[in-house]
Nucleic acid binder design. Structure first.
Length: 496
RNA sequence: GCCCCCAUCGUCUAGUGGACUAGGACAUCGCCCUUUCAAGGCGGUGACGGGGAUUCGAAUUCCCCUGGGGGCACCA
Protein backbone atom coordinates (compact mmCIF):
# COMPACT_ATOMS: atom_id res chain seq x y z
CA UNK A 1 0.00 0.00 0.00
CA UNK A 2 1.09 3.52 -0.68
CA UNK A 3 2.46 5.27 2.35
CA UNK A 4 -0.10 7.87 3.36
CA UNK A 5 0.34 10.80 5.62
CA UNK A 6 -2.03 10.50 8.56
CA UNK A 7 -5.07 12.68 8.04
CA UNK A 8 -6.77 14.79 10.64
CA UNK A 9 -10.45 14.95 9.84
CA UNK A 10 -13.51 15.99 11.73
CA UNK A 11 -17.19 15.37 12.01
CA UNK A 12 -18.71 18.67 13.04
CA UNK A 13 -22.42 18.36 13.68
CA UNK A 14 -24.56 20.98 15.30
CA UNK A 15 -26.56 19.63 18.22
CA UNK A 16 -29.97 20.44 16.82
CA UNK A 17 -31.37 16.93 16.85
CA UNK A 18 -30.54 13.32 16.22
CA UNK A 19 -28.33 12.64 13.21
CA UNK A 20 -30.00 10.78 10.37
CA UNK A 21 -28.43 8.51 7.80
CA UNK A 22 -27.44 11.19 5.33
CA UNK A 23 -25.81 13.07 8.11
CA UNK A 24 -23.95 10.26 9.78
CA UNK A 25 -22.63 9.04 6.44
CA UNK A 26 -20.43 12.12 6.49
CA UNK A 27 -19.09 10.96 9.82
CA UNK A 28 -18.47 7.51 8.38
CA UNK A 29 -16.46 8.81 5.43
CA UNK A 30 -14.39 10.99 7.71
CA UNK A 31 -13.83 8.11 10.08
CA UNK A 32 -12.86 5.79 7.23
CA UNK A 33 -10.34 8.27 5.94
CA UNK A 34 -8.84 8.76 9.38
CA UNK A 35 -8.54 5.04 9.96
CA UNK A 36 -7.31 4.35 6.45
CA UNK A 37 -4.49 6.84 6.78
CA UNK A 38 -3.78 6.09 10.40
CA UNK A 39 -4.76 9.61 11.36
CA UNK A 40 -7.25 11.12 13.78
CA UNK A 41 -11.00 11.33 13.69
CA UNK A 42 -12.19 14.34 15.61
CA UNK A 43 -15.67 15.06 16.90
CA UNK A 44 -16.39 18.75 17.20
CA UNK A 45 -19.71 20.08 18.39
CA UNK A 46 -20.75 23.20 16.52
CA UNK A 47 -23.27 24.67 18.91
CA UNK A 48 -23.03 28.28 17.83
CA UNK A 49 -26.75 28.69 17.30
CA UNK A 50 -28.20 29.24 20.72
CA UNK A 51 -31.76 29.30 19.43
CA UNK A 52 -31.66 25.96 17.64
CA UNK A 53 -29.85 24.10 20.35
CA UNK A 54 -31.62 20.94 21.43
CA UNK A 55 -31.18 19.44 24.86
CA UNK A 56 -29.54 16.01 24.73
CA UNK A 57 -28.64 16.25 21.07
CA UNK A 58 -24.91 15.92 21.71
CA UNK A 59 -25.55 12.72 23.64
CA UNK A 60 -27.68 11.46 20.75
CA UNK A 61 -24.89 12.23 18.30
CA UNK A 62 -22.34 10.39 20.40
CA UNK A 63 -24.67 7.45 20.91
CA UNK A 64 -25.24 7.22 17.16
CA UNK A 65 -21.51 7.21 16.47
CA UNK A 66 -20.90 4.65 19.18
CA UNK A 67 -23.58 2.34 17.87
CA UNK A 68 -22.01 2.39 14.43
CA UNK A 69 -18.56 1.85 15.91
CA UNK A 70 -17.22 5.21 14.77
CA UNK A 71 -14.92 6.01 17.65
CA UNK A 72 -13.40 9.46 17.87
CA UNK A 73 -9.82 10.17 18.87
CA UNK A 74 -10.43 13.71 20.00
CA UNK A 75 -13.59 15.39 21.10
CA UNK A 76 -16.13 15.47 23.90
CA UNK A 77 -15.56 12.89 26.65
CA UNK A 78 -12.12 11.90 25.37
CA UNK A 79 -10.54 15.36 25.18
CA UNK A 80 -7.43 15.92 23.13
CA UNK A 81 -4.58 18.34 22.51
CA UNK A 82 -6.82 20.98 20.96
CA UNK A 83 -9.55 20.98 23.60
CA UNK A 84 -12.16 22.19 24.06
CA UNK A 85 -14.03 20.57 21.18
CA UNK A 86 -17.30 22.33 21.83
CA UNK A 87 -17.48 25.64 20.06
CA UNK A 88 -19.54 27.42 22.70
CA UNK A 89 -16.54 26.92 24.94
CA UNK A 90 -14.19 28.55 22.47
CA UNK A 91 -15.87 31.92 22.08
CA UNK A 92 -12.84 34.08 22.94
CA UNK A 93 -10.86 32.63 20.03
CA UNK A 94 -13.46 33.57 17.48
CA UNK A 95 -13.84 37.02 18.93
CA UNK A 96 -10.12 37.49 18.82
CA UNK A 97 -9.85 36.36 15.22
CA UNK A 98 -12.80 38.51 14.20
CA UNK A 99 -11.17 41.50 15.91
CA UNK A 100 -7.99 40.80 13.96
CA UNK A 101 -9.91 41.01 10.75
CA UNK A 102 -11.60 44.23 11.79
CA UNK A 103 -8.22 45.62 12.77
CA UNK A 104 -6.72 44.90 9.41
CA UNK A 105 -9.72 46.34 7.59
CA UNK A 106 -10.91 43.00 6.26
CA UNK A 107 -14.08 43.05 8.30
CA UNK A 108 -16.33 45.70 9.74
CA UNK A 109 -19.04 46.33 12.27
CA UNK A 110 -22.52 46.37 10.84
CA UNK A 111 -25.41 47.97 12.66
CA UNK A 112 -28.21 47.07 10.31
CA UNK A 113 -31.21 45.73 12.17
CA UNK A 114 -32.96 42.48 11.35
CA UNK A 115 -35.95 44.52 10.21
CA UNK A 116 -33.92 46.62 7.83
CA UNK A 117 -32.27 43.54 6.36
CA UNK A 118 -35.60 41.89 5.91
CA UNK A 119 -37.01 44.92 4.14
CA UNK A 120 -33.91 45.07 1.98
CA UNK A 121 -34.31 41.45 0.93
CA UNK A 122 -37.99 41.93 0.24
CA UNK A 123 -37.19 44.87 -2.01
CA UNK A 124 -34.54 42.85 -3.80
CA UNK A 125 -36.99 40.04 -4.34
CA UNK A 126 -39.49 42.50 -5.81
CA UNK A 127 -36.85 43.77 -8.19
CA UNK A 128 -35.96 40.11 -8.92
CA UNK A 129 -32.45 40.63 -7.72
CA UNK A 130 -30.52 38.06 -5.74
CA UNK A 131 -30.81 38.65 -2.00
CA UNK A 132 -27.55 40.10 -0.84
CA UNK A 133 -26.31 42.50 1.81
CA UNK A 134 -26.28 45.95 0.23
CA UNK A 135 -23.14 47.21 1.91
CA UNK A 136 -24.72 50.06 3.87
CA UNK A 137 -22.40 49.77 6.84
CA UNK A 138 -19.45 48.88 4.66
CA UNK A 139 -19.66 52.39 3.25
CA UNK A 140 -19.88 54.05 6.64
CA UNK A 141 -16.91 56.22 7.61
CA UNK A 142 -14.58 54.48 10.05
CA UNK A 143 -15.15 57.16 12.69
CA UNK A 144 -18.88 56.68 12.62
CA UNK A 145 -18.59 52.93 12.95
CA UNK A 146 -16.23 53.38 15.85
CA UNK A 147 -18.50 55.95 17.50
CA UNK A 148 -21.59 53.77 17.24
CA UNK A 149 -19.74 50.70 18.36
CA UNK A 150 -18.29 52.50 21.37
CA UNK A 151 -21.74 53.87 22.06
CA UNK A 152 -22.87 50.33 22.64
CA UNK A 153 -25.09 50.01 19.60
CA UNK A 154 -25.79 46.36 18.86
CA UNK A 155 -23.83 45.11 15.90
CA UNK A 156 -22.44 42.15 14.04
CA UNK A 157 -19.11 41.74 12.32
CA UNK A 158 -19.24 41.30 8.59
CA UNK A 159 -16.45 40.09 6.38
CA UNK A 160 -15.52 42.63 3.75
CA UNK A 161 -15.57 40.52 0.62
CA UNK A 162 -13.10 41.94 -1.89
CA UNK A 163 -15.21 42.87 -4.90
CA UNK A 164 -12.62 43.19 -7.60
CA UNK A 165 -14.41 41.39 -10.37
CA UNK A 166 -12.29 38.33 -9.87
CA UNK A 167 -13.13 34.72 -9.36
CA UNK A 168 -12.67 32.80 -6.17
CA UNK A 169 -11.53 29.32 -7.05
CA UNK A 170 -10.92 26.28 -4.97
CA UNK A 171 -10.12 22.69 -5.67
CA UNK A 172 -12.57 20.04 -4.68
CA UNK A 173 -11.24 16.50 -4.66
CA UNK A 174 -14.48 15.10 -6.01
CA UNK A 175 -15.29 17.68 -8.67
CA UNK A 176 -12.10 19.49 -9.48
CA UNK A 177 -11.95 23.27 -9.83
CA UNK A 178 -15.00 25.19 -8.71
CA UNK A 179 -15.17 28.93 -9.05
CA UNK A 180 -17.45 31.78 -8.11
CA UNK A 181 -17.37 35.44 -9.05
CA UNK A 182 -16.54 37.55 -6.06
CA UNK A 183 -19.40 39.95 -6.71
CA UNK A 184 -21.76 37.04 -6.15
CA UNK A 185 -20.52 36.68 -2.61
CA UNK A 186 -22.09 39.02 -0.12
CA UNK A 187 -20.45 40.54 2.94
CA UNK A 188 -21.38 37.71 5.25
CA UNK A 189 -21.66 37.85 9.00
CA UNK A 190 -18.82 36.22 10.88
CA UNK A 191 -19.68 37.29 14.40
CA UNK A 192 -23.27 37.59 15.53
CA UNK A 193 -24.63 40.26 17.84
CA UNK A 194 -24.77 37.77 20.69
CA UNK A 195 -21.03 37.31 20.43
CA UNK A 196 -21.25 33.86 18.88
CA UNK A 197 -19.43 33.18 15.64
CA UNK A 198 -21.27 32.01 12.56
CA UNK A 199 -20.44 28.65 11.04
CA UNK A 200 -18.16 30.27 8.49
CA UNK A 201 -15.86 31.83 11.04
CA UNK A 202 -15.91 29.08 13.64
CA UNK A 203 -15.38 26.35 11.11
CA UNK A 204 -12.40 28.02 9.45
CA UNK A 205 -10.78 29.08 12.70
CA UNK A 206 -11.17 25.67 14.30
CA UNK A 207 -10.13 23.70 11.26
CA UNK A 208 -6.98 25.76 11.16
CA UNK A 209 -6.30 25.69 14.87
CA UNK A 210 -6.93 21.95 14.99
CA UNK A 211 -4.70 21.26 11.99
CA UNK A 212 -7.46 19.66 10.01
CA UNK A 213 -6.05 18.27 6.76
CA UNK A 214 -9.25 17.27 4.95
CA UNK A 215 -12.65 18.83 5.12
CA UNK A 216 -15.02 16.03 4.15
CA UNK A 217 -18.59 17.28 4.19
CA UNK A 218 -21.80 17.30 2.20
CA UNK A 219 -22.06 19.13 -1.09
CA UNK A 220 -24.58 21.52 0.42
CA UNK A 221 -21.47 23.36 1.58
CA UNK A 222 -20.09 24.01 -1.87
CA UNK A 223 -21.73 27.38 -2.18
CA UNK A 224 -20.31 28.65 1.08
CA UNK A 225 -16.87 27.22 0.45
CA UNK A 226 -15.64 30.34 -1.36
CA UNK A 227 -16.41 32.31 1.78
CA UNK A 228 -14.20 29.97 3.70
CA UNK A 229 -11.47 30.27 1.12
CA UNK A 230 -11.65 34.04 1.40
CA UNK A 231 -11.31 33.74 5.15
CA UNK A 232 -8.27 31.50 4.88
CA UNK A 233 -6.67 34.15 2.72
CA UNK A 234 -7.67 37.02 4.97
CA UNK A 235 -6.15 35.20 7.93
CA UNK A 236 -3.03 34.43 5.98
CA UNK A 237 -3.60 30.71 6.33
CA UNK A 238 -3.93 29.90 2.64
CA UNK A 239 -0.79 27.76 2.72
CA UNK A 240 -2.39 25.38 5.16
CA UNK A 241 -5.81 25.24 3.62
CA UNK A 242 -7.33 21.79 4.03
CA UNK A 243 -8.25 19.61 1.10
CA UNK A 244 -11.93 20.04 0.34
CA UNK A 245 -13.99 16.95 -0.30
CA UNK A 246 -17.64 17.63 -0.96
CA UNK A 247 -19.58 14.42 -0.91
CA UNK A 248 -22.78 14.09 -2.88
CA UNK A 249 -25.83 14.44 -0.70
CA UNK A 250 -28.04 11.51 0.08
CA UNK A 251 -31.47 11.69 -1.45
CA UNK A 252 -34.67 10.38 0.05
CA UNK A 253 -36.91 7.95 -1.81
CA UNK A 254 -38.58 10.96 -3.43
CA UNK A 255 -35.20 12.20 -4.64
CA UNK A 256 -35.16 15.25 -2.43
CA UNK A 257 -32.18 15.80 -0.15
CA UNK A 258 -32.56 13.45 2.76
CA UNK A 259 -34.01 15.33 5.69
CA UNK A 260 -36.92 15.08 8.07
CA UNK A 261 -39.04 16.38 5.24
CA UNK A 262 -37.82 13.66 2.88
CA UNK A 263 -38.13 10.49 4.86
CA UNK A 264 -35.01 10.67 6.98
CA UNK A 265 -35.12 8.82 10.24
CA UNK A 266 -32.62 9.12 13.06
CA UNK A 267 -29.85 6.56 12.87
CA UNK A 268 -30.84 5.22 16.25
CA UNK A 269 -34.23 4.42 14.81
CA UNK A 270 -32.48 1.85 12.61
CA UNK A 271 -31.16 0.19 15.70
CA UNK A 272 -34.68 -0.02 17.04
CA UNK A 273 -35.87 -1.53 13.76
CA UNK A 274 -33.34 -4.31 13.96
CA UNK A 275 -30.65 -3.27 11.58
CA UNK A 276 -27.12 -4.37 12.33
CA UNK A 277 -24.60 -1.54 12.59
CA UNK A 278 -22.15 -3.36 10.35
CA UNK A 279 -24.84 -3.69 7.67
CA UNK A 280 -25.69 -0.02 7.87
CA UNK A 281 -22.02 0.91 7.71
CA UNK A 282 -21.52 -1.27 4.65
CA UNK A 283 -24.60 0.16 3.03
CA UNK A 284 -23.77 3.80 3.72
CA UNK A 285 -20.24 3.34 2.48
CA UNK A 286 -21.61 2.24 -0.87
CA UNK A 287 -23.74 5.35 -1.11
CA UNK A 288 -21.39 7.51 -3.11
CA UNK A 289 -18.33 5.30 -2.91
CA UNK A 290 -17.43 2.05 -4.57
CA UNK A 291 -14.48 -0.25 -4.50
CA UNK A 292 -14.90 -1.79 -7.93
CA UNK A 293 -17.52 -3.21 -10.23
CA UNK A 294 -18.57 -6.09 -8.04
CA UNK A 295 -18.00 -5.63 -4.33
CA UNK A 296 -21.20 -5.31 -2.36
CA UNK A 297 -20.56 -6.98 0.94
CA UNK A 298 -17.50 -5.45 2.50
CA UNK A 299 -16.75 -5.60 6.19
CA UNK A 300 -15.41 -2.82 8.33
CA UNK A 301 -11.78 -3.89 8.15
CA UNK A 302 -11.75 -4.17 4.39
CA UNK A 303 -13.56 -0.91 4.15
CA UNK A 304 -10.85 0.79 6.15
CA UNK A 305 -8.17 -0.95 4.15
CA UNK A 306 -9.54 -0.08 0.73
CA UNK A 307 -11.30 3.22 1.32
CA UNK A 308 -10.16 6.08 -0.83
CA UNK A 309 -11.26 9.63 -1.44
CA UNK A 310 -10.61 9.30 -5.16
CA UNK A 311 -13.40 6.81 -5.55
CA UNK A 312 -16.09 9.02 -4.11
CA UNK A 313 -18.53 9.71 -6.91
CA UNK A 314 -20.04 13.06 -7.77
CA UNK A 315 -23.67 12.07 -8.23
CA UNK A 316 -26.12 12.13 -5.38
CA UNK A 317 -27.55 8.80 -4.39
CA UNK A 318 -31.05 7.88 -3.29
CA UNK A 319 -31.39 5.95 -0.09
CA UNK A 320 -32.77 2.55 -1.03
CA UNK A 321 -34.36 0.71 1.87
CA UNK A 322 -34.88 -2.54 -0.03
CA UNK A 323 -31.21 -2.98 -0.65
CA UNK A 324 -30.43 -2.17 2.95
CA UNK A 325 -32.91 -4.84 4.01
CA UNK A 326 -31.26 -7.38 1.76
CA UNK A 327 -27.83 -6.45 3.04
CA UNK A 328 -28.99 -6.65 6.62
CA UNK A 329 -30.23 -10.15 5.90
CA UNK A 330 -26.82 -11.08 4.58
CA UNK A 331 -25.18 -9.86 7.77
CA UNK A 332 -27.75 -11.63 9.91
CA UNK A 333 -26.99 -14.90 8.14
CA UNK A 334 -23.30 -14.42 8.77
CA UNK A 335 -23.85 -14.40 12.52
CA UNK A 336 -23.31 -17.50 14.63
CA UNK A 337 -26.53 -18.80 16.23
CA UNK A 338 -25.18 -17.74 19.59
CA UNK A 339 -24.50 -14.19 18.42
CA UNK A 340 -27.85 -13.91 16.75
CA UNK A 341 -29.58 -15.11 19.89
CA UNK A 342 -27.91 -12.33 21.84
CA UNK A 343 -28.91 -9.71 19.31
CA UNK A 344 -32.46 -11.01 19.20
CA UNK A 345 -32.96 -11.05 22.95
CA UNK A 346 -33.90 -7.36 23.40
CA UNK A 347 -36.49 -7.60 20.65
CA UNK A 348 -38.06 -10.76 22.04
CA UNK A 349 -37.92 -9.51 25.60
CA UNK A 350 -39.75 -6.40 24.59
CA UNK A 351 -42.34 -8.56 22.84
CA UNK A 352 -42.60 -10.89 25.80
CA UNK A 353 -43.20 -8.04 28.18
CA UNK A 354 -46.12 -6.98 26.03
CA UNK A 355 -47.67 -10.37 25.38
CA UNK A 356 -46.76 -12.32 28.51
CA UNK A 357 -45.90 -15.31 26.36
CA UNK A 358 -45.48 -18.06 28.98
CA UNK A 359 -42.82 -20.18 27.31
CA UNK A 360 -40.30 -17.55 26.33
CA UNK A 361 -36.73 -18.06 27.48
CA UNK A 362 -33.29 -17.49 26.09
CA UNK A 363 -32.60 -21.19 25.78
CA UNK A 364 -35.77 -21.81 23.79
CA UNK A 365 -34.92 -18.84 21.60
CA UNK A 366 -31.48 -20.32 21.07
CA UNK A 367 -33.15 -23.43 19.66
CA UNK A 368 -35.46 -21.38 17.48
CA UNK A 369 -32.68 -19.25 16.01
CA UNK A 370 -31.41 -21.79 13.45
CA UNK A 371 -34.96 -22.09 12.17
CA UNK A 372 -35.50 -18.39 11.58
CA UNK A 373 -32.02 -17.11 10.83
CA UNK A 374 -32.22 -17.30 7.06
CA UNK A 375 -35.75 -15.95 7.12
CA UNK A 376 -34.86 -12.72 8.89
CA UNK A 377 -34.07 -9.47 7.21
CA UNK A 378 -34.39 -7.40 10.32
CA UNK A 379 -34.14 -8.38 13.96
CA UNK A 380 -37.50 -6.85 14.77
CA UNK A 381 -39.20 -9.36 12.49
CA UNK A 382 -38.38 -12.18 14.89
CA UNK A 383 -41.46 -11.96 17.14
CA UNK A 384 -43.83 -12.13 14.18
CA UNK A 385 -41.88 -15.04 12.77
CA UNK A 386 -41.49 -17.07 15.92
CA UNK A 387 -44.22 -16.16 18.37
CA UNK A 388 -45.87 -19.59 18.18
CA UNK A 389 -42.82 -21.18 19.77
CA UNK A 390 -43.44 -19.23 22.94
CA UNK A 391 -47.18 -19.19 23.48
CA UNK A 392 -49.69 -21.77 24.67
CA UNK A 393 -52.95 -21.29 22.81
CA UNK A 394 -52.97 -20.75 19.09
CA UNK A 395 -55.55 -18.54 17.47
CA UNK A 396 -56.25 -19.26 13.81
CA UNK A 397 -59.06 -19.88 11.39
CA UNK A 398 -60.12 -23.52 11.09
CA UNK A 399 -60.38 -23.29 7.32
CA UNK A 400 -56.59 -23.13 7.20
CA UNK A 401 -56.53 -26.72 8.44
CA UNK A 402 -58.09 -27.97 5.25
CA UNK A 403 -55.86 -26.76 2.46
CA UNK A 404 -56.61 -27.36 -1.15
CA UNK A 405 -56.56 -31.09 -1.83
CA UNK A 406 -57.56 -32.10 1.67
CA UNK A 407 -61.25 -31.86 2.65
CA UNK A 408 -62.08 -31.07 6.29
CA UNK A 409 -63.15 -34.62 7.09
CA UNK A 410 -60.00 -36.05 5.64
CA UNK A 411 -57.99 -33.45 7.47
CA UNK A 412 -59.56 -34.38 10.77
CA UNK A 413 -58.90 -38.07 10.22
CA UNK A 414 -55.37 -37.39 9.13
CA UNK A 415 -54.70 -35.27 12.19
CA UNK A 416 -56.17 -37.97 14.41
CA UNK A 417 -53.92 -40.63 12.89
CA UNK A 418 -51.02 -38.26 13.08
CA UNK A 419 -51.57 -37.63 16.76
CA UNK A 420 -51.67 -41.37 17.35
CA UNK A 421 -48.55 -42.13 15.39
CA UNK A 422 -46.59 -39.26 16.79
CA UNK A 423 -47.49 -39.83 20.41
CA UNK A 424 -46.12 -43.34 20.08
CA UNK A 425 -42.73 -42.04 19.01
CA UNK A 426 -39.91 -42.98 21.38
CA UNK A 427 -37.80 -40.02 20.41
CA UNK A 428 -39.12 -36.54 19.69
CA UNK A 429 -36.55 -35.56 17.10
CA UNK A 430 -36.91 -34.11 13.60
CA UNK A 431 -35.76 -37.40 12.13
CA UNK A 432 -38.16 -39.54 14.17
CA UNK A 433 -41.04 -37.16 13.42
CA UNK A 434 -40.30 -37.11 9.75
CA UNK A 435 -40.03 -40.91 9.60
CA UNK A 436 -43.30 -41.40 11.40
CA UNK A 437 -45.27 -38.77 9.54
CA UNK A 438 -43.96 -39.64 6.11
CA UNK A 439 -44.72 -43.29 6.77
CA UNK A 440 -48.24 -42.33 7.68
CA UNK A 441 -48.63 -40.21 4.58
CA UNK A 442 -47.72 -43.24 2.52
CA UNK A 443 -50.06 -45.48 4.42
CA UNK A 444 -52.98 -43.07 4.11
CA UNK A 445 -52.16 -42.24 0.53
CA UNK A 446 -51.92 -38.54 1.28
CA UNK A 447 -49.96 -36.04 -0.76
CA UNK A 448 -47.34 -34.51 1.41
CA UNK A 449 -48.04 -30.96 0.31
CA UNK A 450 -51.55 -30.57 1.68
CA UNK A 451 -50.99 -33.04 4.47
CA UNK A 452 -47.89 -31.36 5.87
CA UNK A 453 -49.64 -28.04 5.37
CA UNK A 454 -52.47 -29.23 7.55
CA UNK A 455 -50.15 -30.34 10.32
CA UNK A 456 -48.24 -27.09 9.99
CA UNK A 457 -51.35 -25.08 10.68
CA UNK A 458 -52.33 -27.31 13.57
CA UNK A 459 -48.92 -26.98 15.17
CA UNK A 460 -48.00 -23.39 14.37
CA UNK A 461 -51.33 -21.75 13.67
CA UNK A 462 -50.23 -20.51 10.28
CA UNK A 463 -49.70 -21.66 6.73
CA UNK A 464 -46.11 -20.42 6.62
CA UNK A 465 -43.44 -21.49 9.04
CA UNK A 466 -39.93 -22.88 9.30
CA UNK A 467 -39.51 -26.53 8.27
CA UNK A 468 -42.21 -28.60 9.93
CA UNK A 469 -40.32 -31.39 11.65
CA UNK A 470 -37.66 -29.21 13.14
CA UNK A 471 -40.33 -26.82 14.27
CA UNK A 472 -42.25 -29.61 15.98
CA UNK A 473 -39.10 -30.87 17.62
CA UNK A 474 -38.43 -27.47 19.14
CA UNK A 475 -42.01 -26.91 20.26
CA UNK A 476 -41.88 -30.21 22.09
CA UNK A 477 -44.07 -33.25 22.45
CA UNK A 478 -46.49 -31.92 25.02
CA UNK A 479 -47.48 -28.76 23.24
CA UNK A 480 -47.54 -30.45 19.84
CA UNK A 481 -49.98 -33.09 21.00
CA UNK A 482 -52.12 -30.50 22.69
CA UNK A 483 -52.19 -28.45 19.51
CA UNK A 484 -53.11 -31.46 17.41
CA UNK A 485 -55.98 -32.13 19.80
CA UNK A 486 -57.10 -28.55 19.58
CA UNK A 487 -57.01 -28.68 15.81
CA UNK A 488 -59.07 -31.86 15.68
CA UNK A 489 -61.56 -30.23 18.01
CA UNK A 490 -61.72 -27.18 15.78
CA UNK A 491 -62.52 -29.35 12.78
CA UNK A 492 -65.22 -31.22 14.66
CA UNK A 493 -66.89 -27.95 15.56
CA UNK A 494 -66.63 -26.80 12.01
CA UNK A 495 -68.40 -29.97 10.83
CA UNK A 496 -71.19 -29.71 13.40
C1' G B 1 -35.01 35.07 -9.70
C1' C B 2 -29.51 34.46 -9.13
C1' C B 3 -25.18 31.23 -8.23
C1' C B 4 -23.01 26.33 -8.00
C1' C B 5 -23.04 21.12 -8.86
C1' C B 6 -24.68 16.65 -11.22
C1' A B 7 -26.60 13.36 -15.38
C1' U B 8 -25.31 4.92 -17.24
C1' C B 9 -31.07 -0.13 -16.01
C1' G B 10 -36.88 1.63 -11.22
C1' U B 11 -32.61 2.06 -7.30
C1' C B 12 -27.04 1.70 -5.87
C1' U B 13 -23.12 1.49 -9.22
C1' A B 14 -18.61 -0.28 -12.84
C1' G B 15 -16.85 2.34 -16.91
C1' U B 16 -11.21 7.90 -17.48
C1' G B 17 -11.39 7.08 -26.65
C1' G B 18 -11.24 1.14 -29.38
C1' A B 19 -11.23 -4.96 -24.61
C1' C B 20 -18.95 -2.38 -24.44
C1' U B 21 -23.58 -6.73 -28.80
C1' A B 22 -22.33 -1.38 -21.59
C1' G B 23 -20.49 -5.36 -16.36
C1' G B 24 -22.22 -6.22 -11.09
C1' A B 25 -25.89 -5.63 -6.94
C1' C B 26 -31.01 -4.62 -5.01
C1' A B 27 -35.90 -4.88 -6.76
C1' U B 28 -38.92 -7.44 -10.47
C1' C B 29 -40.29 -11.82 -13.66
C1' G B 30 -39.50 -17.16 -14.93
C1' C B 31 -37.32 -21.94 -13.91
C1' C B 32 -34.77 -25.37 -10.50
C1' C B 33 -34.41 -27.10 -5.37
C1' U B 34 -38.57 -28.05 -1.99
C1' U B 35 -43.58 -30.03 3.20
C1' U B 36 -44.97 -23.89 3.23
C1' C B 37 -41.92 -19.50 3.55
C1' A B 38 -37.13 -18.24 3.21
C1' A B 39 -32.10 -19.14 1.74
C1' G B 40 -29.54 -20.96 -2.55
C1' G B 41 -28.75 -22.01 -7.99
C1' C B 42 -29.84 -20.78 -13.16
C1' G B 43 -32.01 -17.53 -16.63
C1' G B 44 -35.01 -13.11 -18.42
C1' U B 45 -36.84 -7.90 -18.68
C1' G B 46 -34.25 -3.39 -17.99
C1' A B 47 -29.83 2.21 -18.88
C1' C B 48 -25.53 5.60 -21.56
C1' G B 49 -31.63 12.41 -21.24
C1' G B 50 -31.56 15.33 -26.30
C1' G B 51 -28.75 17.97 -30.03
C1' G B 52 -24.34 19.50 -32.09
C1' A B 53 -18.74 19.37 -32.32
C1' U B 54 -13.73 16.82 -32.05
C1' U B 55 -11.98 11.95 -33.79
C1' C B 56 -10.78 6.69 -38.22
C1' G B 57 -13.63 5.61 -33.67
C1' A B 58 -17.20 8.18 -28.30
C1' A B 59 -21.02 6.13 -22.29
C1' U B 60 -16.06 8.13 -21.96
C1' U B 61 -13.55 15.00 -24.58
C1' C B 62 -15.92 20.08 -25.69
C1' C B 63 -20.41 23.27 -26.37
C1' C B 64 -25.72 24.10 -26.12
C1' C B 65 -30.47 22.46 -24.42
C1' U B 66 -33.31 19.71 -21.06
C1' G B 67 -33.83 17.46 -16.44
C1' G B 68 -32.50 16.81 -11.35
C1' G B 69 -30.12 18.43 -6.95
C1' G B 70 -27.82 21.98 -3.72
C1' G B 71 -27.27 26.97 -2.05
C1' C B 72 -28.73 32.20 -1.68
C1' A B 73 -29.93 33.94 7.18
C1' C B 74 -27.12 37.47 13.04
C1' C B 75 -28.87 28.21 10.67
C1' A B 76 -25.40 24.81 10.43
Amino acid sequence: MVQLTPARVRYAPSPTGLPHVGNIRTALFNWLWARHTGGQFILRIEDTDVARRVEGATEGIMESLRWLGLDWDEGPLVGGPYAPYVQSERLPRYEQEAARLVGSGRAYFCFCSEERLEAMRAAQARRREPPRYDGTCRRLPDEERKRRKDGGEPCVVRFKVPHRGETVTFHDLVRGEISFRDEDIEDFVILKSDGYPTYHLANVVDDHLMSITHVIRGEEWISSCPKHVLLYHAFGWQREMPVFVHMPVTLGPDKGKLSKRHGAEPVLEYRRQGYLPEALVNFMALLGWSLDDKTEIIGREDLVKHFSLERIGATSAAFNREKLDWMNGVYIRQLSPEELTDKLMPFLEEWQARTRAPHFSRSLLRQVVPLIQERLRRLDEAPALADFFFVDELAYDAVLLAPRGLPPDAARDALGRTREAVSALREWTPEALEGGIRGLALELGLKTGPYFGCIRVAVTGRAVSPPLFQTMAVIGRGRCLARLDAAIEKLKQGAA
